[in-house]
Amino acid sequence: MPTGDDDMQWLHKDLLDVSQLSTREVASLFETARYFREINSRSVKKVPTLRGKSVVLFFAEPSTRTKTSFDVAGKRLSADTFSLSATGSSLKKGETLKDTALTLQAMSPDAIVIRHSSSGAAQFLAERLDCCVINAGDGRHAHPTQALLDAFTLSEAWGGFKGRTLLILGDVAHSRVARSNVILLDRLGVKVRLCGPRTLMPSGVETWPVGVHRDLDQAVRGVDAVMCLRLQLERQQAGLLPDLREYARLFGLGRRHLDRAAKGAFVMHPGPINRGVEIDSDLADSPESLILEQVAGGLAVRMALLFLFLSRKTNE
């Protein structure tokens, strides 16, 4: 069984954001993920590594892919996974997040994977619970497992990060995916550019380690990959953009843009995709698209994370 570096200990109780991870820990995580990816290609896709461990999937916001990914990751490692969703949960009946969390903890899970619409909700839980808390997306704040799987996918596709440039395109202001990716990829040595209308750029972006572009034709020039972000339809109602047609015309990624990028540049999307809005439908299905690799890599990365966090105590 891999343990990352020879004598590296996984010291974190929780995964709240990528900023807590050193590059060495990320490398170790990726090494572990590569090992688990191999399991996913076997005919019997299950190992007994986490037998007897239980993982609660507490998704207080709708999610299909992330929740399924964690569920499958846990099951392939023989952990027991339990789901709790917002609809039908006591949160809907007015119970506070704290009380729900304490109730869950009383059932002594080894980890709680939380998705919540409030920024900071994962940290709120982690400060109050003894078990491991893994942030599967808190409001607009952070989505560390998505960033880790994106970086893992890029590292496999590029063969390394040195000298690479990535463009993150779209609604950065409301994107936890973008926030976590900027932190992680910058730390890994990737040059990051952002492009989108000013109304969808976060306040204080000028202090981020990124280049900010308004014009997609310029932004895409020479980049090694473009990560499109999902555009939520509420942004139009909130008065942040006039309509989807104009948005797609100015900031939808098409073949003509990719032709300006570096040779062999890739296209990514955290899903679910609005085909024809943030990305041309054809491009999503093109050979340059890493979208399905992201999903497969996500499973391996989440297996690696569950393994590192849940076997932490026995390592000590």
């Binding site: 808190d138 409001g139 704040h141 202001a173 409301h174 936890r176 306040s203 204080g204």
Partner: peptide
């Protein structure tokens, strides 16, 4: 406050 912190934390400032 709307600013560097709210942008970083993903909060409406």
């Amino acid at each position: 406050n709307d600013g560097v912190l709210s942008g970083r934390l993903g909060l409406d400032g």
